[in-house]
Simulated scan of single mutants.
Amino acid sequence: MPCVPRPEKTPSAVRLIPAFAGIATGGAAAIILTAAGPAEASPTVALPHHAVGASAAIPFPPASQAKQWPIPGRGLDARPIKKPKENRPQKVPTAADALKLALSQVGTTETAAGGTKFNQWFMSSPFAKRGVQRDGGSIGDYANASWCDMFVTWVGAQVGVKGIGGDAFTPEHARWFQQQHRWGSAPKPGAVVFFAWNGGHGIDDIDHVGLVVKDNHNGTIQTVEGNTDDAVRIRTRSTDQVVGYGYPQYG
Rank of each mutant, 00 (worst) to 15 (best):
R235S: 14
S12T: 06
D97Y: 01
V52D: 01
R134C: 12
W197N: 15
I31R: 05
L103E: 12
F151V: 10
T44C: 03
K91G: 00
I81P: 00
P93S: 00
D97V: 04
Q105Y: 09
A21W: 00
L103W: 02
G156W: 13
K117T: 12
K91E: 10
A19P: 06
A13H: 03
T236A: 10
A98L: 09
N218R: 00
C148Y: 05
N119C: 04
P2L: 12
A98Q: 07
T223N: 14
K9Y: 14
E8I: 10
F177A: 01
G114C: 05
A145Q: 01
G163A: 00
L101W: 07
A19F: 14
A112C: 03
T228D: 06
K67M: 10
A21G: 05
N144F: 13
A24Q: 11
F177E: 02
F194A: 07
G37A: 04
V232K: 09
A98W: 12
W147S: 06
K83G: 08
S238I: 00
G190S: 07
F60A: 04
A231D: 08
C3N: 15
M150N: 13
A30P: 14
A28E: 04
E225V: 15
I203L: 12
G114F: 03
V92T: 14
D229Q: 14
I17V: 12
M1P: 00
K214G: 04
G107S: 04
A191Q: 02
F122L: 10
G163D: 06
M1F: 00
H208P: 11
N198V: 07
I58H: 11
A13M: 11
E225P: 09
G184Q: 05
P43S: 12
N218D: 12
V155K: 03
R6W: 08
G27C: 08
A113C: 11
G166W: 04
G251Q: 04
Q249F: 03
K129S: 14
K129E: 15
F118S: 03
V192A: 09
Q222L: 03
A13K: 08
Q241K: 12
